[in-house]
Design a protein around this nucleic acid. Structure first.
Lengths: 201, 201
DNA sequence: GTCTATAGCAGGATAGAC
DNA sequence: GTCTATCCTGCTATAGAC
């Protein structure tokens, strides 16, 4: 990964992703990124055009494209309960697969940064769909909540919460068997129950 | 607030809290803090001993002391369902009352920063209690979940999620009446339902 | 494409006058 | 307690040699 087995551009991207996730954007210097990537400092400007552009390139490279995905699951997304289950699972799977990128997203969501625009552009399709499903699910009587905003917030909270794992194991001894494989389902179940859906499982 | 109606130390603390919340710790400069606080740059070193110490001072000043609080609610905390309801409500109330401090906490939780130690020291009592309540609630048959870690994560997610409000109203038009007053109860209900508790409301 | 060298600036901190 | 002036370090970015 950090060896010269891949091209420089990729090495820089991977190092930047790792470091942004651990230390935040501002807390990470271009020098540090290049050191870890075994790349010369000047190459960040040459290949990307600056630190800011590296940030954007990370999203372009690693954020799962959700354009075709929506078409692929068109049928499931018609039903609010099925659709929300699917989306929550997919988001949680993503946060497990790419902890780094989801850490970066997590951080940027609370900041009023110049990078927010980039982040929002990538996240909008999914969360807009979530909003739509919540609204339709309520109309159809499947979900029970007072405020859309409150429901939306809790769904966001559950699905994105995984990233605090690092600090969590300070409070929990890990004799508990936390199996990432089953977590997407647990999270989805939690969300649906929280929204007042009766589950037959 | 930003006028010279309070003493310098307090003005610095308030400005720092505001800016750390909006821009992150690394994204905020001492110069900027002092400018907003109408204070001279040298006073940060004089009164606190550096930027890092300002961060700690913010927690000492504004984090609600949870030592006496636990004794005060001793009775409610004996029952897992009651106890968890109480704590979730209190945390959510706190995140609404002091959005800035909870934004700061939110940010630091995902970072591996030198400030993590400070943050954890303040948060530990509450989250340790949550863990205990979850465990006991499961033993007593009140809660239903597979993994303690998974349950813990979802509770954290819901209770801390409020801070993403700023980015949320990009996706939600605010014709939805989100009433902060009722949110603590909604969040608590969501959590309990998610944990499989049968509610009579 | 990659490197060295350096420009140019902003950061945190403090010495010392008041 | 407060201020000015300054130190030193580290940052991003780029010009120009290879």
């Amino acid at each position: 990964m950090e060896l010269n087995d891949t091209d420089v551009k990729t090495r820089i991207l991977l190092s930047a992703k790792r470091l942004f996730a651990k230390q935040g954007y501002e807390g990470t210097s271009v020098r540090q990124i290049c050191e870890e990537a075994n790349a010369n400092i000047a190459l960040v400007s040459y290949h990307f055009g600056g630190k800011e552009k590296v940030f954007e390139a990370i999203f372009e490279q690693f954020y799962p494209g959700s354009e075709e995905a929506f078409n692929q699951y068109e049928d499931e997304l018609k039903n609010p309960v099925e659709g929300l289950t699917l989306i929550v699972r997919e988001i949680v799977v993503f946060t497990i697969n790419d902890k780094e990128l989801s850490d970066i997203i997590q951080q940027e969501l609370t900041l009023q940064s110049p990078r927010m625009e980039t982040v929002q552009a990538f996240l909008s399709p999914v969360w807009f769909k979530v909003k739509e499903l919540l609204e339709r699910g309520k109309e159809e009587g499947a979900f029970h909540f007072d405020s859309l905003t409150a429901a939306f917030l809790t769904v966001m909270g559950v699905t994105l919460s995984h990233k605090r794992f690092r600090s969590v194991n300070v409070w929990l001894e890990d004799n508990d068997r936390f199996i990432p494989d089953s977590y997407p389902d647990q999270a989805a179940r939690f969300v649906l129950q929280g929204l007042g859906v009766k589950l037959n499982s």
